[in-house]
Design a protein around this nucleic acid. Structure first.
Length: 343
DNA sequence: TTGTGTTTTATTGCCTCC
DNA sequence: GGAGGCAATAAAACACAA
Protein backbone atom coordinates (compact mmCIF):
# COMPACT_ATOMS: atom_id res chain seq x y z
CA UNK A 1 0.00 0.00 0.00
CA UNK A 2 1.22 3.37 -0.81
CA UNK A 3 1.57 5.63 2.14
CA UNK A 4 -0.73 8.49 2.56
CA UNK A 5 -3.04 7.60 -0.22
CA UNK A 6 -6.75 7.85 -0.45
CA UNK A 7 -8.20 4.90 -2.15
CA UNK A 8 -11.61 5.17 -3.66
CA UNK A 9 -13.05 2.06 -5.09
CA UNK A 10 -15.85 2.99 -7.42
CA UNK A 11 -15.91 -0.31 -9.20
CA UNK A 12 -17.44 -2.35 -6.47
CA UNK A 13 -20.32 -4.70 -6.84
CA UNK A 14 -22.76 -2.04 -7.70
CA UNK A 15 -23.92 -1.83 -4.18
CA UNK A 16 -22.17 1.27 -3.20
CA UNK A 17 -19.04 -0.26 -1.82
CA UNK A 18 -16.35 2.24 -1.12
CA UNK A 19 -12.94 1.61 0.21
CA UNK A 20 -10.87 4.20 1.91
CA UNK A 21 -7.35 3.59 2.88
CA UNK A 22 -5.09 5.73 4.83
CA UNK A 23 -1.75 4.15 5.05
CA UNK A 24 0.49 6.80 6.36
CA UNK A 25 4.01 5.43 6.36
CA UNK A 26 4.38 5.59 10.07
CA UNK A 27 0.85 6.44 10.77
CA UNK A 28 -2.30 4.53 11.42
CA UNK A 29 -1.51 0.88 11.01
CA UNK A 30 -3.65 -0.49 8.24
CA UNK A 31 -6.24 2.13 8.55
CA UNK A 32 -8.33 0.93 5.71
CA UNK A 33 -11.87 1.92 6.28
CA UNK A 34 -14.46 -0.21 4.64
CA UNK A 35 -18.07 0.78 4.45
CA UNK A 36 -20.19 -1.85 5.93
CA UNK A 37 -23.84 -1.90 6.97
CA UNK A 38 -23.99 1.77 6.60
CA UNK A 39 -21.27 2.33 9.13
CA UNK A 40 -18.68 4.72 7.92
CA UNK A 41 -15.10 4.07 8.83
CA UNK A 42 -13.89 5.98 11.78
CA UNK A 43 -10.68 7.36 10.50
CA UNK A 44 -8.54 10.30 11.08
CA UNK A 45 -8.12 13.06 8.60
CA UNK A 46 -6.79 12.60 5.12
CA UNK A 47 -3.09 12.18 4.80
CA UNK A 48 -1.14 13.98 2.18
CA UNK A 49 -1.45 11.95 -1.01
CA UNK A 50 -0.20 12.82 -4.45
CA UNK A 51 -0.01 16.34 -3.30
CA UNK A 52 -3.77 16.49 -2.97
CA UNK A 53 -5.49 16.90 0.32
CA UNK A 54 -9.09 15.86 0.33
CA UNK A 55 -11.64 15.21 2.97
CA UNK A 56 -12.88 11.66 3.32
CA UNK A 57 -16.39 12.40 2.33
CA UNK A 58 -16.92 14.30 -0.81
CA UNK A 59 -20.20 15.63 -2.01
CA UNK A 60 -21.96 13.68 -4.74
CA UNK A 61 -21.39 16.55 -7.11
CA UNK A 62 -17.68 16.35 -6.60
CA UNK A 63 -17.75 12.68 -7.26
CA UNK A 64 -19.37 13.23 -10.63
CA UNK A 65 -16.59 15.45 -11.81
CA UNK A 66 -14.18 13.76 -14.16
CA UNK A 67 -11.36 15.70 -12.61
CA UNK A 68 -12.14 14.10 -9.32
CA UNK A 69 -11.49 10.66 -10.76
CA UNK A 70 -8.38 11.84 -12.51
CA UNK A 71 -7.05 12.77 -9.16
CA UNK A 72 -8.56 9.87 -7.30
CA UNK A 73 -7.72 7.00 -9.59
CA UNK A 74 -9.97 4.17 -8.62
CA UNK A 75 -7.93 1.75 -6.60
CA UNK A 76 -8.43 -1.85 -7.50
CA UNK A 77 -9.15 -4.50 -4.98
CA UNK A 78 -5.87 -5.57 -3.48
CA UNK A 79 -4.84 -9.03 -2.56
CA UNK A 80 -3.17 -9.65 0.72
CA UNK A 81 0.52 -10.30 0.62
CA UNK A 82 1.76 -13.87 1.06
CA UNK A 83 3.10 -12.89 4.46
CA UNK A 84 -0.26 -11.57 5.55
CA UNK A 85 -2.02 -14.65 4.26
CA UNK A 86 0.50 -16.88 5.98
CA UNK A 87 -0.07 -15.24 9.33
CA UNK A 88 -3.82 -15.33 8.87
CA UNK A 89 -3.67 -19.00 7.94
CA UNK A 90 -1.64 -19.78 11.01
CA UNK A 91 -4.09 -17.92 13.15
CA UNK A 92 -6.98 -19.71 11.49
CA UNK A 93 -5.38 -23.05 12.24
CA UNK A 94 -5.25 -22.16 15.89
CA UNK A 95 -8.85 -21.09 16.02
CA UNK A 96 -11.21 -20.51 13.16
CA UNK A 97 -13.35 -18.09 15.09
CA UNK A 98 -12.12 -14.62 15.73
CA UNK A 99 -12.70 -12.94 19.05
CA UNK A 100 -12.44 -9.16 19.08
CA UNK A 101 -9.09 -9.00 20.87
CA UNK A 102 -7.47 -11.38 18.46
CA UNK A 103 -8.98 -9.55 15.54
CA UNK A 104 -7.56 -6.26 16.72
CA UNK A 105 -4.19 -7.80 17.44
CA UNK A 106 -4.03 -9.49 14.04
CA UNK A 107 -5.10 -6.34 12.29
CA UNK A 108 -2.38 -4.43 14.09
CA UNK A 109 0.27 -7.02 13.22
CA UNK A 110 -0.78 -7.26 9.60
CA UNK A 111 -1.41 -3.63 9.01
CA UNK A 112 -4.96 -4.31 8.05
CA UNK A 113 -8.31 -3.01 9.12
CA UNK A 114 -9.97 -5.25 11.71
CA UNK A 115 -12.89 -5.52 9.36
CA UNK A 116 -10.59 -6.94 6.69
CA UNK A 117 -9.35 -9.55 9.12
CA UNK A 118 -12.90 -10.44 10.01
CA UNK A 119 -13.85 -10.72 6.37
CA UNK A 120 -10.84 -12.87 5.67
CA UNK A 121 -11.81 -15.25 8.47
CA UNK A 122 -15.35 -15.34 7.27
CA UNK A 123 -14.33 -16.22 3.75
CA UNK A 124 -11.80 -18.70 5.04
CA UNK A 125 -14.46 -20.44 7.08
CA UNK A 126 -16.65 -20.62 4.01
CA UNK A 127 -13.82 -22.18 2.00
CA UNK A 128 -13.11 -24.61 4.79
CA UNK A 129 -16.73 -25.63 4.96
CA UNK A 130 -16.95 -26.21 1.23
CA UNK A 131 -13.85 -28.33 1.29
CA UNK A 132 -15.10 -30.26 4.28
CA UNK A 133 -18.38 -30.96 2.62
CA UNK A 134 -16.65 -32.20 -0.50
CA UNK A 135 -14.39 -34.50 1.42
CA UNK A 136 -17.16 -35.78 3.63
CA UNK A 137 -19.24 -36.41 0.60
CA UNK A 138 -16.48 -38.47 -0.97
CA UNK A 139 -16.18 -40.50 2.20
CA UNK A 140 -19.89 -41.01 2.40
CA UNK A 141 -19.96 -42.15 -1.17
CA UNK A 142 -17.14 -44.62 -0.58
CA UNK A 143 -18.96 -45.94 2.48
CA UNK A 144 -22.11 -46.25 0.52
CA UNK A 145 -20.40 -48.11 -2.30
CA UNK A 146 -19.08 -50.64 0.18
CA UNK A 147 -22.46 -50.93 1.84
CA UNK A 148 -24.13 -51.31 -1.48
CA UNK A 149 -21.77 -54.11 -2.48
CA UNK A 150 -22.50 -55.90 0.78
CA UNK A 151 -26.15 -55.45 0.28
CA UNK A 152 -26.08 -56.79 -3.25
CA UNK A 153 -24.17 -59.84 -2.13
CA UNK A 154 -26.72 -60.36 0.60
CA UNK A 155 -29.53 -60.04 -1.87
CA UNK A 156 -28.00 -62.62 -4.17
CA UNK A 157 -27.60 -64.96 -1.24
CA UNK A 158 -31.17 -64.37 -0.34
CA UNK A 159 -32.31 -65.19 -3.85
CA UNK A 160 -30.29 -68.34 -3.94
CA UNK A 161 -31.68 -69.57 -0.65
CA UNK A 162 -35.20 -68.64 -1.59
CA UNK A 163 -35.08 -70.64 -4.79
CA UNK A 164 -33.66 -73.49 -2.76
CA UNK A 165 -36.67 -73.30 -0.47
CA UNK A 166 -39.01 -73.28 -3.43
CA UNK A 167 -37.37 -76.32 -4.96
CA UNK A 168 -37.46 -78.25 -1.72
CA UNK A 169 -41.02 -77.22 -1.00
CA UNK A 170 -42.10 -78.45 -4.41
CA UNK A 171 -40.38 -81.73 -3.76
CA UNK A 172 -42.18 -82.05 -0.46
CA UNK A 173 -45.51 -81.33 -2.06
CA UNK A 174 -44.85 -83.90 -4.75
CA UNK A 175 -44.29 -86.49 -2.07
CA UNK A 176 -47.25 -85.37 0.00
CA UNK A 177 -49.71 -85.74 -2.86
CA UNK A 178 -49.79 -89.58 -2.96
CA UNK A 179 -49.67 -89.55 0.82
CA UNK A 180 -53.08 -87.88 0.80
CA UNK A 181 -54.53 -90.97 -0.84
CA UNK A 182 -52.84 -93.21 1.69
CA UNK A 183 -56.00 -93.47 3.84
CA UNK A 184 -57.94 -94.69 0.89
CA UNK A 185 -55.37 -97.38 0.50
CA UNK A 186 -56.78 -99.10 3.59
CA UNK A 187 -59.50 -100.52 1.45
CA UNK A 188 -57.30 -100.90 -1.48
CA UNK A 189 -56.03 -103.99 -3.06
CA UNK A 190 -52.76 -105.62 -2.03
CA UNK A 191 -50.63 -104.05 -4.73
CA UNK A 192 -51.83 -100.69 -3.60
CA UNK A 193 -51.00 -101.55 -0.01
CA UNK A 194 -47.56 -102.55 -1.07
CA UNK A 195 -47.16 -99.23 -2.76
CA UNK A 196 -48.27 -97.48 0.39
CA UNK A 197 -45.77 -99.43 2.42
CA UNK A 198 -43.05 -98.56 0.01
CA UNK A 199 -44.04 -94.96 0.40
CA UNK A 200 -43.82 -95.27 4.15
CA UNK A 201 -40.33 -96.70 3.82
CA UNK A 202 -39.19 -93.58 2.14
CA UNK A 203 -40.55 -91.43 4.93
CA UNK A 204 -37.20 -91.47 6.66
CA UNK A 205 -35.53 -89.99 3.64
CA UNK A 206 -38.38 -87.49 3.36
CA UNK A 207 -37.86 -86.43 6.93
CA UNK A 208 -34.25 -85.67 6.18
CA UNK A 209 -35.25 -83.66 3.15
CA UNK A 210 -37.85 -81.79 5.14
CA UNK A 211 -35.29 -81.00 7.79
CA UNK A 212 -33.01 -79.58 5.12
CA UNK A 213 -35.84 -77.50 3.74
CA UNK A 214 -36.70 -76.22 7.18
CA UNK A 215 -33.11 -75.31 7.76
CA UNK A 216 -32.93 -73.47 4.49
CA UNK A 217 -36.13 -71.70 5.31
CA UNK A 218 -34.72 -70.64 8.64
CA UNK A 219 -31.62 -69.27 6.97
CA UNK A 220 -33.79 -67.27 4.62
CA UNK A 221 -35.70 -65.89 7.54
CA UNK A 222 -32.48 -64.88 9.22
CA UNK A 223 -31.35 -63.22 6.03
CA UNK A 224 -34.54 -61.26 5.87
CA UNK A 225 -34.19 -60.24 9.49
CA UNK A 226 -30.71 -59.06 8.67
CA UNK A 227 -32.14 -56.99 5.87
CA UNK A 228 -34.69 -55.51 8.19
CA UNK A 229 -31.95 -54.66 10.66
CA UNK A 230 -29.95 -53.14 7.86
CA UNK A 231 -32.83 -50.99 6.88
CA UNK A 232 -33.50 -50.05 10.47
CA UNK A 233 -29.98 -48.77 10.64
CA UNK A 234 -30.71 -46.81 7.54
CA UNK A 235 -33.66 -45.16 9.12
CA UNK A 236 -33.58 -41.55 10.35
CA UNK A 237 -32.58 -40.35 13.76
CA UNK A 238 -28.84 -40.39 13.37
CA UNK A 239 -28.50 -36.80 14.34
CA UNK A 240 -28.22 -33.57 12.45
CA UNK A 241 -25.99 -33.13 9.50
CA UNK A 242 -25.92 -31.19 6.34
CA UNK A 243 -26.27 -34.39 4.40
CA UNK A 244 -29.24 -35.41 6.46
CA UNK A 245 -30.79 -32.08 5.80
CA UNK A 246 -30.26 -32.70 2.14
CA UNK A 247 -31.85 -36.07 2.61
CA UNK A 248 -34.83 -34.49 4.26
CA UNK A 249 -35.12 -32.16 1.35
CA UNK A 250 -35.10 -35.15 -0.94
CA UNK A 251 -37.71 -36.87 1.15
CA UNK A 252 -39.84 -33.84 0.89
CA UNK A 253 -39.54 -34.09 -2.83
CA UNK A 254 -40.93 -37.55 -3.07
CA UNK A 255 -38.16 -39.81 -1.92
CA UNK A 256 -38.88 -42.31 0.80
CA UNK A 257 -36.92 -43.86 3.60
CA UNK A 258 -35.88 -47.42 3.40
CA UNK A 259 -38.28 -49.97 4.67
CA UNK A 260 -37.72 -53.66 4.23
CA UNK A 261 -36.23 -55.55 1.40
CA UNK A 262 -38.65 -57.12 -0.92
CA UNK A 263 -36.36 -59.72 -2.30
CA UNK A 264 -38.93 -61.02 -4.69
CA UNK A 265 -38.73 -57.93 -6.80
CA UNK A 266 -35.14 -57.06 -6.01
CA UNK A 267 -36.01 -53.61 -4.88
CA UNK A 268 -37.00 -51.69 -1.82
CA UNK A 269 -40.43 -51.28 -0.38
CA UNK A 270 -41.18 -48.17 1.52
CA UNK A 271 -43.74 -48.37 4.24
CA UNK A 272 -46.52 -45.95 3.81
CA UNK A 273 -45.83 -45.49 0.17
CA UNK A 274 -48.74 -45.94 -2.13
CA UNK A 275 -47.67 -49.06 -3.94
CA UNK A 276 -44.07 -48.04 -3.47
CA UNK A 277 -43.87 -46.46 -6.86
CA UNK A 278 -43.61 -42.95 -5.62
CA UNK A 279 -40.98 -43.97 -3.09
CA UNK A 280 -38.74 -46.21 -5.05
CA UNK A 281 -35.99 -43.71 -5.57
CA UNK A 282 -34.24 -42.99 -2.32
CA UNK A 283 -32.79 -44.99 0.51
CA UNK A 284 -30.85 -43.88 3.53
CA UNK A 285 -27.96 -45.71 5.04
CA UNK A 286 -25.54 -45.31 7.90
CA UNK A 287 -21.82 -45.15 7.67
CA UNK A 288 -19.78 -47.21 10.04
CA UNK A 289 -16.92 -45.50 11.75
CA UNK A 290 -18.28 -42.03 11.62
CA UNK A 291 -17.30 -39.08 9.57
CA UNK A 292 -14.33 -36.96 10.14
CA UNK A 293 -14.17 -33.45 8.96
CA UNK A 294 -11.55 -32.49 6.47
CA UNK A 295 -9.25 -30.45 8.57
CA UNK A 296 -9.52 -32.54 11.65
CA UNK A 297 -6.88 -34.73 10.18
CA UNK A 298 -4.88 -31.75 9.21
CA UNK A 299 -2.19 -30.11 11.25
CA UNK A 300 -4.26 -29.47 14.27
CA UNK A 301 -6.61 -27.08 12.63
CA UNK A 302 -10.23 -26.84 13.58
CA UNK A 303 -9.92 -29.62 16.01
CA UNK A 304 -13.18 -31.16 16.91
CA UNK A 305 -14.99 -29.54 14.07
CA UNK A 306 -17.14 -31.88 12.14
CA UNK A 307 -20.28 -31.41 10.24
CA UNK A 308 -21.45 -34.91 10.91
CA UNK A 309 -21.98 -37.00 13.99
CA UNK A 310 -20.25 -40.33 14.37
CA UNK A 311 -23.19 -42.26 13.18
CA UNK A 312 -23.76 -39.94 10.30
CA UNK A 313 -25.93 -41.32 7.62
CA UNK A 314 -25.25 -41.63 3.99
CA UNK A 315 -28.02 -41.01 1.64
CA UNK A 316 -28.30 -42.63 -1.64
CA UNK A 317 -30.77 -43.24 -4.31
CA UNK A 318 -31.80 -46.68 -5.29
CA UNK A 319 -33.34 -46.07 -8.61
CA UNK A 320 -34.69 -48.94 -10.53
CA UNK A 321 -33.94 -49.43 -14.13
CA UNK A 322 -31.57 -46.54 -14.56
CA UNK A 323 -28.39 -45.12 -13.25
CA UNK A 324 -27.61 -41.47 -13.01
CA UNK A 325 -24.86 -39.60 -11.31
CA UNK A 326 -25.34 -35.94 -10.85
CA UNK A 327 -22.58 -33.66 -9.74
CA UNK A 328 -22.16 -29.97 -9.83
CA UNK A 329 -18.99 -30.04 -11.79
CA UNK A 330 -20.63 -28.17 -14.56
CA UNK A 331 -22.18 -25.56 -12.38
CA UNK A 332 -19.88 -25.42 -9.46
CA UNK A 333 -20.38 -23.28 -6.45
CA UNK A 334 -24.06 -23.15 -6.86
CA UNK A 335 -24.52 -24.52 -3.41
CA UNK A 336 -26.47 -27.55 -4.51
CA UNK A 337 -25.91 -30.95 -3.01
CA UNK A 338 -24.91 -33.58 -5.50
CA UNK A 339 -26.60 -36.92 -5.45
CA UNK A 340 -26.44 -40.28 -7.10
CA UNK A 341 -28.99 -42.62 -8.37
CA UNK A 342 -28.16 -46.20 -8.93
CA UNK A 343 -29.99 -49.01 -10.56
C1' DT B 1 -3.56 -11.08 -26.69
C1' DT B 2 -7.77 -12.64 -25.41
C1' DG B 3 -11.29 -15.42 -23.69
C1' DT B 4 -12.52 -18.22 -19.91
C1' DG B 5 -12.47 -20.39 -15.53
C1' DT B 6 -11.02 -20.03 -10.68
C1' DT B 7 -9.76 -17.68 -6.50
C1' DT B 8 -9.90 -13.92 -3.46
C1' DT B 9 -11.74 -9.84 -1.34
C1' DA B 10 -15.67 -7.52 -0.06
C1' DT B 11 -20.78 -6.29 0.43
C1' DT B 12 -25.59 -7.17 1.50
C1' DG B 13 -29.30 -9.16 3.81
C1' DC B 14 -30.94 -12.16 7.09
C1' DC B 15 -30.58 -14.57 11.39
C1' DT B 16 -29.26 -15.46 16.20
C1' DC B 17 -27.56 -14.23 20.55
C1' DC B 18 -26.88 -11.31 24.41
C1' DG C 1 -30.91 -2.95 19.18
C1' DG C 2 -26.15 -3.91 18.22
C1' DA C 3 -22.61 -7.32 17.14
C1' DG C 4 -21.26 -11.07 14.79
C1' DG C 5 -22.07 -15.20 11.85
C1' DC C 6 -23.42 -17.13 7.47
C1' DA C 7 -25.22 -17.59 2.60
C1' DA C 8 -25.36 -15.48 -1.58
C1' DT C 9 -23.34 -12.65 -4.61
C1' DA C 10 -20.34 -9.13 -7.16
C1' DA C 11 -16.24 -8.02 -9.02
C1' DA C 12 -11.19 -7.68 -9.15
C1' DA C 13 -7.21 -10.49 -9.51
C1' DC C 14 -5.11 -14.27 -11.21
C1' DA C 15 -4.06 -18.54 -14.07
C1' DC C 16 -3.94 -20.64 -18.26
C1' DA C 17 -5.01 -22.41 -22.75
C1' DA C 18 -5.73 -21.25 -27.64
Amino acid sequence: MEPGRLIFNTSGSGNGQMLFMDCGAGGIAGAAGVFHRGVRPVLGGMEEGRGVKRPFFTSPDDMLEEEYYDEQLPEKKRRLTPEQVHLLERSFEEENKLEPERKTELARKLGLQPRQVAVWFQNRRARWKTKTLERDFDRLKASFDALRADHDALLQDNHRLLSQVVTLTEKMQDKEAPEGSFGAAVDASEPEQAAAEAEAKTSLADAEEQAAAAEAFEVVQQQQQLHVKDEERLSPGSGGSAVLDARDALLGSGCGLAGVVDSSVDSYCFPGGAGGDEYHECVMGPVAGGIQSEEDDGAGSDEGCSYYPDDAAVFFAAAQGHSHHHTDDDDQDDGQISYWMWN
